[in-house]
Amino acid sequence: MGETVVRFGIIGAAEIARKVSRAIALAPNAIVLAIGSRSREKALKFASDNGLNPEVKIYGSYEAVLDDPEIDAVYMPLPTSLHLLWAVLAAEKKKHVLLEKPVALNVAEFDKILEACEANGVQFMDGTMWMHNPRTAMMKEFLSDANKFGQLKSVYSDFTYAFDSNFLANDIRIKPEFDGLGALGDFGWYCIRSILFAANFELPKKVIALPNPIRNECGVILSCGCSLLWDDGKIATFYCSFLSNMTTNLTAIGTNGTLHLTDFVIPYDEKEARFSTHSKSRFAHLMTGWGPIPDEHIVPTDLPQEAHMVRKFSHLVNKIKQNGTKPKKKWPIISRKTQLVLDAVKASLDQGFEVEVGE
């Protein structure tokens, strides 16, 4: 039996929803069936601005999307403070949940979302798009190669972007009532996920936030860094900021090799992605150079990474619908581990000392 098309409802008209609505249109096994916002006018404007099919249903409330019996799954680009309420309601309405990151304000809230998803047999996945780029699978092959990479020793990740004064004054990501985690919840989420990816999702034992995070007048984090430590000696450091020039670096160093890329969040080109690796590097005679020269890998793709994400999520939803399989646990487990580390980092930033990572 071929895959049926998964029918999406989008709850919220945030900027990121423009990108994901396009991804749903590009994915071969998904369509946008409905868009819901706080007003019908706002939903209509979103549909018009983004060229949605004229047959897409327009709703003036989030509840109306969840009450539509034709909708299989919902994508939620809502402020983090609203995730608990609407993700739980979606699960209770038997809608599969594709949720923007950070998934919750803390792991206690996220556990309630997961409980609702599990109780109602619906698939959960967060919106960390780079995880679904074909490049990511190739990077994992290198990191898993004992000869070429060896044992992981350290990771460095950063995600920064110099936002303008309008963003810093008005965006929901810097307002405590909407997204109180600020740069840590938004950009730091990507950094933490990349570190866990390199560490094969083994949780660190402790985190130590770097001193002097920058906060706005409301106390929301605009810039911060942190070190993560494992019992076996692995270390990782990340830096995230709304105040610095755009940079998205990821470097993983093993006993035998190194992986490096400079666009891990969003590739420079959505049709291909690159990364470099080098193994068993040595200085040349008299230290006049070094080698071997890093290998450059180019990974072509038929779809942008966000469409790969939608396709994967829809495939899992179809397996549940058509075959009665249980939801894939991999994705909620990864989300929860990311949230656990994020919680520990926030505690260290707030309290100014070493914090153990929870379970």
Rank of each mutant, 00 (worst) to 15 (best):
G291I: 02
T277M: 13
I293H: 00
N216R: 08
R274G: 03
K319H: 11
P292L: 03
G257N: 09
P327D: 08
S314H: 08
I266Y: 12
Q339R: 09
L316I: 06
K205H: 13
K328C: 15
E202R: 11
F197I: 05
M246H: 09
T258L: 14
S223A: 14
K319Y: 07
K329V: 12
L222Y: 09
C224F: 06
I253P: 00
F201D: 13
F201R: 06
S241L: 09
E202N: 12
L259P: 09
T277F: 11
T262W: 08
G225W: 00
Q322H: 08
F283Y: 12
E272S: 02
L342Y: 01
V341R: 13
I266D: 10
E202C: 03
K312H: 06
V341F: 14
E202S: 07
L342S: 09
A209I: 03
L261T: 10
Y268D: 11
Y239T: 02
E217D: 10
P327L: 15
F238G: 06
W331M: 12
G257I: 11
C226W: 09
P304H: 05
A236P: 00
K326P: 03
E270L: 04
K337D: 10
E306H: 04
P211C: 00
L342A: 11
L229W: 00
T277D: 05
M287F: 08
S281P: 00
I253Q: 10
N245A: 14
F275E: 05
